[in-house]
């Protein structure tokens, strides 16, 4: 993987000869493109993106996210998905046979769900659904969060990073595109997994992270077993 990681500020010109400008870039002049974020430039095969170091999550159709139920209405739940706007879920978009008025027995305020963004509109209203494979209510476990732009790094190439943490700590992990992460397992293992996730978040802009992560996990695991290094 050839990767150049250049730090840019809002308004910095982006060299569009390297690829087609895509996310985090705006047109600032006739043939010129500028960064709209404080972040790093990422050049892939044909596109050039600016990935911000932090920032809120913007829902996109098809994203699988973790959300918290904050309000129950007669036929809708209001869900907080860690984005500037709340989202809604209608009772017909769940796998349960619900009747209007008693949907509280399925999900009540404070519950977490793993859901998919179904629709979005121009004024950023959105709806999520639980009707797909793997989507469900998350029972038990712990919730931790990272900033949304770091999620691809947490998952790693083809899920390599998150699988490595799962295997090393023996926990079950669900990563939402919005930066919320659900971790279930033995309390100590969950703590290790959380610290590993935080480490990936802090060092997301560096290279060779997977190897360092492997080393880190081996070390903590050794200590947890009572063995010295």
């Amino acid at each position: 993987m050839t990767e150049t990681k250049q730090i840019v500020m809002p308004g910095d010109p982006i060299d569009s000869s390297l690829g087609k400008p895509r996310n985090g870039v705006y047109k600032c002049g006739d043939q010129q493109f500028c960064s709209s974020y404080f972040g790093i430039v990422q050049v892939s095969d044909q596109f050039i993106d600016v990935v911000p170091f932090s920032g809120p999550y913007y829902p996109r159709r098809g994203d699988k996210v973790i959300g918290k139920v904050i309000e129950v209405g007669p036929s809708m739940w209001t869900i907080d998905i860690n984005s500037p706007y709340h989202t809604l879920m209608h009772m017909n978009d769940t796998p349960w046979r619900t009747n209007a008025g008693d949907i509280k027995k399925y999900l009540s305020p404070g519950d977490y769900i793993y859901a998919k963004v179904m629709t979005l509109n121009d004024i950023r209203e959105s709806w999520v659904t639980l009707k797909d494979v793997g989507l469900r209510k998350l029972e038990g476990g712990h919730i931790t969060s990272v900033s949304a732009p770091k999620v691809p790094r947490i998952i790693g190439k083809g899920g390599s990073m998150v699988n490595m943490i799962k295997d090393a700590t023996g926990t079950r992990i669900v990563v939402g595109q919005n930066g919320l992460i659900w971790i279930d397992g033995e309390a100590e293992n969950v703590m290790i997994a959380i610290s590993a996730v935080k480490m990936v978040e802090n060092e997301a802009h560096t290279t060779g992270l997977t190897d360092r992560m492997q080393k880190y996990l081996n070390e903590v695991k050794g200590e947890a077993n009572g063995n010295s290094k």
Partner: peptide, 11 residues
């Protein structure tokens, strides 16, 4: 504002 990851045209 830039550190918060909010898109800006310029500083």
């Amino acid at each position: 504002v830039a550190a918060a990851g909010i898109p800006m045209r310029d500083l």
